[in-house]
Design a protein around this nucleic acid. Structure first.
Lengths: 187, 187, 187, 187
DNA sequence: AATGAATGAGGGTTCATTCAT
DNA sequence: GATGAATGAACCCTCATTCAT
């Protein structure tokens, strides 16, 4: 087919091609997320994709966790460098912006029971809880909500907003405004 | 068998049996939502179920819209009978409570592109927009958000909270508290 | 395709067609024992065969146990009606004759870990042990071999002879002669 | 890498590595007998294994015949050096002991239609026929069975006993006792 | 009109073999 | 010459839909 396709040392590149294809398809709710479709998109054979990752779930695990890892890292950085009250708002905005670029990934962040994704999901939850807790101690967030509950609330609603299709700037802004005001300690 | 029974009545009864079975299965994430399972649950043949509705999507359209219709009606009633500021809060609570009883229905409210469901989705959006608009005129909701945008925001986040699994009373309460406070005009 | 193929009441007949096809293929080591081949031979679709039995293993379980059941029953009858010394010889001859008609079934009698086949395998072993034990008490079989061991010995070698391809009358006769003489108490 | 090493020697060593790996896997019913597994065990690439032999069947042909050849040779030696009546008994014991060490090899001795294995299978049959014939002339084996038929009988049953799983010393002993007594001329 | 049975289409996966490095 | 990677073919299985009863 594509006579220029290289092999050997570029196995890593093919791996990435498959990941990119999976990511692309995760963003196209129209086309079914089948191994065949992923492989076609990557310019590979279906068996190659399966073999490279060891199964469809493992491929999705890799794709989703590759996307999620920098998000978790960013949360950690914000937690370390920024004032608690601001960190939460900043991160929320960035989280939505991130998911805006990787549409239906969110569907798989929840629900995919594979090691890498599950671990990152846990990490993200922990970092966000810490964010909330500090913000509460700082007086920036109301204390009548348990940090774990607040984290669930924030994560789920942010996901929903990010998943909106079409997603408008207005919607995201409104969400951030409402959520952050709603989280403030009542007057 | 029951040669004296009027056929028309049987057909209607079967239709309802299938709808009830589909509704029941929509609430049981454990069992796959296949035509066969729906038919077995309804005590009917698989062919009958398909034939009665003309396809699985049509059946789901009927089931989902049957569930959604009273919700829309309730919204209309609240709009007519209750003070704008209260209506929104009341309805939001009821909407989540409803979805809590019909777990995965929400997944199909979005995403199912069939006439009845799409129409009700539109109806619901319009009623909620009207709710928001009136609440804004009443000074109960901040006016810096477009009613259509606010409706999208409310609908999507409510859906996400309702879909949470496990769903805790704490989460729902926190959501209502935060969202309603966040929607109030800023001090 | 075959316009004369009947349906409804003959579902049982189709079941039998599939079983017969499986049995036939079990006897043709040349053609692979795939669901597709079984279905083609039976004049059915592959999905039908799978659906009817619930999986390939279940089909083989049914085929093998259907063939094995009368053999076990015959052993029970002989045990009840015939003198111990004769019963063993008679049964052995019939066992081989049976397997001669159902060639490679034997491969699956061993090795197929499915309920019906496993149960019959156990039943057959028990009946044969009882046969050997009685023949030993009767002085017709040497007593320096444990009945369970003798049963294993007889079963496995009979299987092997039955599996022979081509199988000659001479071979079977020689086997019976040698085995029965070998089992007699030493002079 | 090892630029000084003569290629021919490497090739021969790889050939033996692959054969050893195949032999090892033939004895481990747990792990599937795939080219990949053989190659991994040999510390070689899958392509190398295939390329060295020209296909999986050719590899198995080589492995099986390598295992079978000494057995045939041993039969020839016994034929030349030992009294006919004893030779048969001795060889039978050794044959089973051999197969006991190379479990599933037996499955491939039969059924593998490749030149080397087929040839050795024929050789073995001929040597055993000669053994039987001489034993018959010596009065050690009954003469009412054709030597070719007796050979088939012995070979097949011995295989079956060797294949038994679990294989017990009791079973093997019982088999040898029964078969050898059964082969003696009737009193 | 109702339905159990049949099935074509499609899904994920495995494996012997081929190819480009 | 050796090999990791790639792949076409084949396997078993599921399911919405159609068909004959």
């Amino acid at each position: 087919m594509s006579s220029g396709t290289p092999r050997r040392a570029d196995a890593l590149r093919n791996r990435q091609l498959a990941l990119d294809a999976a990511t692309a398809l995760l963003a196209e709710p129209g086309t079914p997320l089948t191994v065949e479709n992923i492989a076609r998109r990557a310019g590979l054979g279906a068996a190659t994709v399966v073999r490279t990752f060891g199964g469809k779930d493992a491929l999705l695990d890799a794709a989703v966790s590759d996307l999620l890892a920098p998000v978790v890292q960013r949360a950690r950085d914000l937690l370390a460098e920024t004032a608690p009250g601001q960190a939460l708002g900043l991160f929320l905005g960035e989280l939505i912006a991130f998911q805006a670029t990787h549409h239906s990934v969110s569907d798989h962040v929840e629900g995919l029971n594979m090691p890498a994704t599950a671990a990152l999901r846990g990490d993200l939850a922990r970092v966000m809880e810490e964010m909330v807790e500090r913000a509460q101690r700082d007086g920036a967030v109301r204390t009548d909500i348990d940090p774990a509950v607040a984290t669930g609330l924030i994560g789920r609603t942010a996901l929903a907003i990010a998943r909106a299709q079409p997603r408008s700037r207005q919607l995201v802004d409104a969400y951030l405004t409402v959520l952050l005001q709603g989280l403030r300690p009542p007057a």
